[in-house]
Write a protein that binds this DNA or RNA. Structure first.
Lengths: 242, 242
DNA sequence: AAGTGGTCTAGACCACGCC
DNA sequence: GCGTGGTCTAGACCACTTT
């Protein structure tokens, strides 16, 4: 690894710049693997801790990501996510020339906690369907989601094919239509469970997207919590005012 | 600092847990200052690097923040931001019982770059107004923004009072009304300029919120780039479907 | 088995905020 | 001027992935 003019690669921001320069020059393509930390070290004369500080910096900026104990890789371009669109993850990822995949991790019936009961307007302890899914772009896991549905609106939902768009299933099989959405987005850290599901280190920054869908009668159709990798996503919304 | 039952405070996740427990128990209120790194060290027997790893973890999670070379502090609750609401930052921060402040950093006239010209539909090199502002919640800087406006829509804009809602000024003084918004949100790292304006360390995670406002004729009214602290913000949107 | 990242230690010096 | 965080060094051992 050579350096741009006169950068001080003994400091972590200098090391950062020299690696960033290689990525931006196109020497390293998307998902390319970086040299090992010890190799980067010998290229710069810095201690390994310094090299790692530079790599953490680039990770926070979304330029690189890591696979546990395997190595550091160049991040691909983020995909654009429009929470107001309804054709679903699978089709808009495809529309951007990327390869989507959804994996159903599991389903179960749960008793509503106080918070869930409040959202659905049911009694605490009422039964709800719970779905956990993991979604991929180009074989990289980018989000895990937990979805809750009221069985009274969609009895027998768990017997259907849930590897695609849930909203489509609800519409087609149960004539349940979404009229309104409440969407929350909040930067967060990926904690134990989400991080494990995404196979990243716990504590990596992420984005929590929460969606509550209502039908025309104001009933809650679907409550969805999506934990995204922070570097996989760009949210874009077009909103009419008034 | 005592510990929850049996946590291993020699490891950074153990140190993290013991500090997090103190915050969540309410021992430390909002904006309270944590003990110094060297004090935390002696309380746990860990090396200072380990203590710092724990603090970085908590920072990524949004529980604490730092003031350069001053110390670590407990993060206050995030404010809720609704990009579809038009009464402006000042009033919705107040509505949440917090104390907002806007500071005009500077204004100027700039020549449109290729990207800006494309957004506004003008020739490259055309003149645009540029405003830079910094906004606070409870005297903590939470965002810096750069706003561009086409002078043909609002001649003499820079002579008005720009410490409040720009949209109000445009509506009141120029009868320019927003009919549509395109809003983009993307996790990012706060780079040099933004980090300096927010007085945080360069590289801290943030959220870039970009808004393009259009009037009923489809003309660009306002182009706004907001760089937010990642722990200051929760985006919440209510959207009608169909 | 070899190599990788993940973690940790125990020092050190500096620039800067605060008093 | 003292204490703080910011940065850096030069080791070490472990758990895991990869070959």
């Amino acid at each position: 690894m050579d350096l741009p003019d006169g950068a001080d690669t003994r400091h972590y921001l200098g090391v950062r710049d020299s690696i960033a320069a290689h990525i931006e020059n196109g020497d390293l393509g998307h998902n390319a693997c970086l040299p090992s930390e010890r190799q980067l070290q010998s290229g710069t004369g810095a201690a390994r801790g310094t090299v790692r500080a530079a790599l953490f910096q680039l990770e926070a900026e979304g330029l690189i990501y890591r696979k546990e104990r395997s190595g550091w890789y160049v991040s691909p371009a983020p995909i654009v996510y429009d929470p107001t669109r309804w054709e679903g993850f699978m089709s808009y990822v495809k529309a951007q020339g990327r390869d989507p995949k959804t994996e159903l991790l599991g389903t179960c019936e749960v008793q509503a906690t106080a918070a869930l009961a409040d959202i659905f307007g049911v009694d605490a302890g009422a039964t709800l369907y719970e779905l956990r899914r993991r979604r991929y772009v180009d074989d990289r896991a980018v989000l895990v989601e937990t979805i809750y549905v009221d069985p009274r609106l969609a009895p027998g939902l768990l017997d259907h094919d849930l590897d695609g768009s849930l909203t489509q299933v609800l519409k087609r099989e149960y004539v349940v239509d979404v009229a309104r959405n409440r969407i929350d987005m909040q930067p967060c850290a990926l904690t134990q469970a989400e991080a494990a599901a995404l196979r990243v280190k716990s504590g990596l920054p992420g984005l929590l997207v929460t969606r509550i869908s209502y039908d025309a009668q104001g009933r809650v159709v679907e409550y969805d919590q999506e934990y995204w990798r922070h570097d996989a996503l760009k949210v874009s919304v077009d909103i009419r005012v008034g």
